[in-house]
């Protein structure tokens, strides 16, 4: 059974359509990368999945039930948002104490370990934390909650590269020991390229891409060489991007066609390049 099933989901705010008939299924015990431009509808989708926002129409099920005001679902969900707000007069340890009350799988020993890893001052007031430290609070809550469905929406605003790597490492370690459904929304696509197992690309409130990361890796290629040779090689394959200079042609192809001619160069596209090109192609359509 899928952890999340969304069918024909539409969300409209005062004349603006944030989600436009979006359909999606997320398999359990998988790290899903939810990618897309700003305003694509990722946060709105995650808010609906966690009962924080109500859909205009469509079907939403999390663990087989609608999430809206449903403690049976919400008790199994943790959602850490970009710029998550905390009571400003809370100390760091009080935020964790609240999470310990709310999250049934909360692991205090693990939270303590993460506090040391991120070098968080436990007794400092939340309002006195730096932007990166604030993000670390959210990450620790998200990881130590060990919720069967954990959603991170751009969780590392202000975090330095070292701290982000700590997050990726801890997430992978913990996921290996305790598999669960993790949805990670981020713009740092290359950083998470090896982390995510499944990619969902959302643009203008619709799903543009919904595929296993393994299938994507190495599938899309950049081909360059003499224009005629490249055109012959790329014949019949969907072209994501095309640029020509002089007699040389460079194309990005959604699939690797086969063995190239000797003077044609073929390189795999990174996940970020593929996402950018697919989004641009979607925008042109």
């Amino acid at each position: 059974m899928s952890a999340v099933v969304v069918e024909d989901l539409t969300m409209r705010y005062r004349g603006h359509t944030a989600l436009n008939g979006l359909s999606l299924a997320l398999e359990p015990d998988t790290v899903h990368g939810m990618l897309g431009r700003n305003g694509a509808g990722k946060t709105t989708l995650m808010r609906i999945l966690t009962g924080q926002e109500f859909e205009t129409s469509g079907r939403v099920e999390v663990f087989g039930q609608p999430p809206r005001e449903n403690p049976a679902v919400l008790n199994r969900v943790c959602f850490i948002r970009e710029a998550q707000r905390y009571p400003s007069n809370y100390k760091v340890r009080e935020a964790f104490a609240a999470a310990a009350i709310a999250c049934r799988n909360w692991d205090q020993a693990y939270a303590d370990r993460l506090v040391k890893d991120f070098e968080l001052p436990r007794d400092r007031q939340i309002k006195k934390l730096s932007r990166g430290q604030l993000s670390a609070v959210g990450i620790i809550i998200g990881l130590a909650a060990r919720a069967p469905l954990t959603l991170f929406d751009e969780p590392y605003l202000g975090l330095d590269a070292v701290a982000r790597q700590i997050f990726y490492d801890r997430l992978l370690e913990d996921f290996a020991e305790r598999p669960r459904t993790i949805v990670l929304s981020t713009h740092l696509i290359d950083e998470v390229a090896d982390l995510v197992e499944h990619v969902v690309l959302i643009d203008h409130g619709k799903v543009l891409m919904d595929q296993d990361a393994d299938q994507l890796r190495g599938r899309a290629v950049s081909v360059s060489g003499p224009a005629e040779a490249v055109a012959a090689y790329a014949d019949g394959v969907p072209v994501l991007h095309r640029s020509e200079l002089g007699g040389r042609l460079r194309v990005a192809l959604a699939e690797r066609p086969g063995r190239p001619a000797r003077d044609v160069s073929v390189d795999s596209l990174t996940l970020q390049e593929l996402i950018v090109l697919t989004t641009n192609q979607g925008d042109r359509k």
Partner: peptide, 18 residues
Amino acid sequence: WLMNQLFPFSMALSVTRR
């Protein structure tokens, strides 16, 4: 304070509105 600071935080911890 409860409505504007603790309510959003409680919702993040998956407490229902009800």
